[in-house]
């Protein structure tokens, strides 16, 4: 049985729900697009839009480990971290390590690109289109669709690297990062956990995300 004192609370519930929501919906969106279930592809995409919007707001207002200011480090810090051996990194950073922080930014950036291009995309037949595609002409909508397709492959590749990195930590460094993202706890000798954000900030982030996602889904036409 794991010693309760030897672990720290590292990921709050909203951050974990966001993470696994992305995993499930990204796969679901992919499946819908491949099997021509476009109605569900839109719903899934708009939910992803709300999730990413939430995460962006949460990155400024959320718990300490979810904040960009807490995990986005300069190149010198990243380089120092890369050169360290596992033993030297004690105590382990709470939350994203300096490389992980950048991978989060890259993944969020790619997700944003994926969502935005999807909103403007139109299919070859002018039949299926994102809620904002009416703002573009057909050719630009097709360009958006093309970027949507290419950027998804890039997103898949970066996600694969993300999973490989987690496997590296599991096999080489004997640290189960996946379980930490499920349970919220990091096993590293204990100590201070994250600083939680007050509930009102969570409510605010959810309201902002849902409002903007709704406005987008309506094409800003009310």
């Amino acid at each position: 049985m794991e010693d309760a004192a030897a672990r720290r609370y590292v990921w709050d519930l909203p951050t974990r729900l966001f993470h696994w929501g992305i995993v499930v919906l990204l796969g679901f969106s992919w499946w819908c697009a491949e099997t021509g279930r476009m109605e569900w592809h839109y719903r899934s995409g708009l939910t992803l839009c709300a999730l990413v919007l939430f995460r962006l707001v949460w990155g400024f207002t959320g718990s300490s480990t979810a904040r960009f200011s807490g995990f986005v480090k300069g190149p010198r810090t990243v380089w120092r971290y890369v050169r360290q051996k596992d033993g030297e990194t004690q105590p382990l950073p709470l939350g994203h390590n300096p490389i992980g922080g950048w991978s989060v930014l890259v993944l969020l950036g790619l997700l944003t690109l994926q969502i935005v291009t999807g909103l403007f995309a139109v299919d070859l037949d002018g039949l299926e289109s994102g809620p904002l595609s009416y703002l573009l002409d057909f050719d630009r909508g097709r360009t958006a669709a093309l970027i949507h397709e290419v950027s998804f492959n890039v997103l898949l590749a970066v996600s694969a690297i993300h999973v490989l990195a987690i496997l590296f930590y599991l096999v080489v460094r004997r640290r189960n990062l996946t379980w930490a993202m499920v349970s919220g706890y990091q096993r590293d000798g204990g100590g201070e956990g994250l600083v939680r954000a007050p509930l009102w900030r969570l409510v605010l982030a959810i309201v902002i995300a849902l409002t903007v996602a709704y406005a987008v889904s309506a094409g800003f036409r009310f």
Partner: peptide, 19 residues
């Protein structure tokens, strides 16, 4: 030719969705 048809159909769908 099909591109023109696609573009025209997008215009129709955009109009219909505008309300």
């Amino acid at each position: 030719g099909y591109r023109e048809i696609g573009a025209a159909f997008k215009a129709i769908n955009d109009q219909l969705r505008s309300g």
